[in-house]
Nucleic acid binder design. Structure first.
Lengths: 191, 191
DNA sequence: TTTTCAATGGGACAAATGTCCTTTTTAGTG
DNA sequence: CACTAAAAAGGACATTTGTCCCATTGAAAA
């Protein structure tokens, strides 16, 4: 549910240690919007600490959360390859620390650093791999099953992430999520 | 709706022309399953002609279509980066021609051919970019709106792709799709 | 041509989810 | 500590979508 990539985190920290002027550290407080949908930016971010949500909002203001990003996850990288606007907003949930790098340097690294190139390639592939079954599951199963599934992979999810965000992640209304949680609780209490 | 990547198609054909022994051409007839979910393969395919569907099926046999792939789209590449099982099945819809290449050669190309590396990177990024808004839209809007949207981007979709596949692409039952199509027709007939 | 089977279309009802509101709880602020 | 605003919980009802059928059509096979 909260995606991480420790291998990438380790490597970007190592680069930061060796080559401080290309990579810079930034800190953000909770609920801070780092990237806004449909804009242009010229930096790629790597999370070293904390959690963000990455979401699309439509004209009615509905948010649909794509991913929760944790340590080692990158964002802002898609726009390096296809020079278009961002498709997602990224907003911090907890305090956040990032290492960031300009598009120019990112490109340079991709060309000169084979290992870096491979890590980014793998990170992209993993994003695709991860999304497919998730959306498939969400469509095919009732809300309750989705909640059970979340509980399994991340038992304390209700403590860290707000109900609204969880609902937007599953793609349902808060009302429906509450209903599912209540029914689930009643069922487990009976036992 | 049917994704293509002409730039990649052009380049892989060019490579095929120059270096025939690493890349081989294959032909498949309609409804042929080229790749099956949860298996291992050692080839990457590039479509040069025809259409396939790429889908996940669950334990109840429900199919959820991730993408329809057309000219220039690749499949089987995700497993090069994370050496796991396939997450999708890929099945031809029309006759299909592909150029395929072994994992080993694919990796070699990525390392030695900068342009190829960049094209693959971009192809991965585009797959991510494309998926996000699509799933968001499908969750947020009723079936009818989704059908209207498909009509806009691919007017003759009902002729090429079966109702069942369209329904599995939108993530609804055939019954619901038919209902939506009927209501849509009634509305437009009134005008 | 007849037969067969899959694809399509749709009726009737059930179940899941959304909408609209109101109440309760919680956390933060003056 | 009291006050306020946001988050959470849930009642009542409407709407959407699914399930379970069966009828029709069309195309491929015998």
């Amino acid at each position: 549910m909260i995606r991480i990539n420790l291998e990438l985190a380790r490597y970007i920290k190592k680069l930061y240690g060796a080559n401080e002027h290309d990579i810079s550290e930034e800190k953000f407080s909770p609920k801070h919007k780092i990237i806004e949908q449909d804009r242009r930016y010229s930096k790629v971010y790597f999370i070293t600490e904390g959690i963000t949500k990455c979401y699309i909002s439509d004209e009615n203001g509905k948010e649909f959360i794509q991913e929760f990003l944790g340590e080692g996850m990158e964002f802002g990288e898609l726009e390096v390859f296809s020079k278009k606007h961002t498709i997602c907003s990224v907003e911090t949930i907890t305090q956040l620390k990032t290492l960031s790098i300009s598009h120019t340097c990112f490109n340079a690294l991709l060309e000169t650093d084979n290992h870096f190139n491979r890590l980014i390639m793998k990170a992209l592939a993993d994003k695709i791999r991860y999304k497919a079954p998730r959306h498939s599951y969400q469509h095919s199963y009732p809300i309750e099953d989705n909640v059970i599934r979340l509980k399994k992979i991340f038992p304390e999810f209700t403590e860290v992430i707000s109900k609204k965000d969880i609902a937007n992640y599953i793609g349902v209304t808060t009302r429906s999520l509450n209903r599912a949680l209540k029914e689930l609780k009643e069922k487990t209490d009976q036992l």
